[in-house]
Amino acid sequence: MTINSAPTARRVAVLVGSLRADSLNRKVAELLRDQAPEGVVIDIVDGLADLPFYEETLDAEATPAAAVALRDRVAAADALLAITPEYNGTMPAVLNNAIDWLSRPYGAGAIVAKPFGVLGTTPTPFGGKWAHEDAQRSARIAGAAVVDGAVVSQSVLEIDPLTDVDAIERFHGVVNALLAFEPAAA
């Protein structure tokens, strides 16, 4: 007897670095979710505003429910994608805090060995490049497998990233790179 089993969907957990409901970066995350190919689930992880700032004693005594939920969602994903603007030349505090929570317990956090990429849009000539570099560095130090080339820093000064075919293709390219990532042999 042959048992037919449907292939398991590949999951990409998405952390949006802007809390604003009408954020362009949130809209990019929603566009990727809505345009995900068959077999791919783009899981926008909400609740980042509910995370207290990381503090080791708080984590050790009674990890907040929001942190447990974040860790569970990311641990269940095949890859992690940050979609973020840039605030004052760096990543928003909410994204940095989420990475801090995901990095613990040290060496075994939900982010460890998880393929990681970042993309985003800003109304600046560099499209959030510095925030994206900071997010990659922080995720790498936290133990993520930062995927080479899985970054898009898109300026919105001359295009609408929600309708520009080339920008959308680059965004999808980051997701594809995350899902195609194979860790280097030890």
Rank of each mutant, 00 (worst) to 15 (best):
A29F: 01
P161G: 12
T124A: 14
A110L: 01
P183Q: 12
F181L: 04
A177P: 03
P37E: 15
E61P: 03
P85H: 03
D72N: 13
G127R: 01
V156A: 15
Q136N: 14
S5Y: 01
G127Y: 02
T57P: 00
G117R: 02
P123G: 12
A60S: 13
V74T: 07
A167R: 04
Q154S: 11
A76N: 09
L95S: 05
T2I: 12
T63N: 06
V118P: 02
N4R: 08
R104H: 06
S155W: 03
I141Q: 06
E86P: 00
F171Y: 13
N88G: 05
A139G: 05
V12M: 06
I141L: 15
E38S: 14
K27A: 15
D22Y: 07
R137M: 09
T57G: 14
A21D: 11
N176I: 00
T122E: 05
A6L: 11
P92M: 07
P92K: 08
V94L: 08
L32Q: 01
F126C: 01
E30V: 13
R26K: 12
A135Q: 05
E30G: 01
P115V: 04
L48D: 07
D43E: 15
A93R: 02
I99R: 00
E133F: 12
V147R: 05
D134G: 01
A6I: 07
D148Q: 14
V68R: 12
D78T: 11
T122F: 02
A177S: 14
W101L: 03
A13E: 06
